[in-house]
Amino acid sequence: MPLTEKDVRYVAELAHLDLTDEEIRKFQPQLDAILGYMQKLNQLDTTQVEPMAQVIAPGGVSLPLRPDRIHESLPQEVALANAPEAGAGHFKVPSVIERE
């Protein structure tokens, strides 16, 4: 099933991207081509292969764990150094309102 312009709008919205109609028309065939290429992988018979999310085979290595010890944190001014806007020791962002 080919990817539609509607799909592109949806994905753009999820990624918080403001795309113009022109861009959407441009990206639709590009995205469709990429996904179409991935379809090639589906042609492989993987019925004998256990699904995996990591390159380390299941059962090989277990997740490394950390003891519950406190390390030193960054000083506040360092933590805030990259903030486009900061104030009163906080990151400042355009006001977020969840209510209707």
Binding site: G87, A88, F91, K92, S95, V96
Partner: peptide, 15 residues
């Protein structure tokens, strides 16, 4: 979202 002089335009984030 409240309690700062410019809370009408900004939200403050503590991580």
């Amino acid at each position: 979202h409240e309690g700062f002089p410019d809370s009408d335009r900004a939200s403050y984030i503590d991580l």
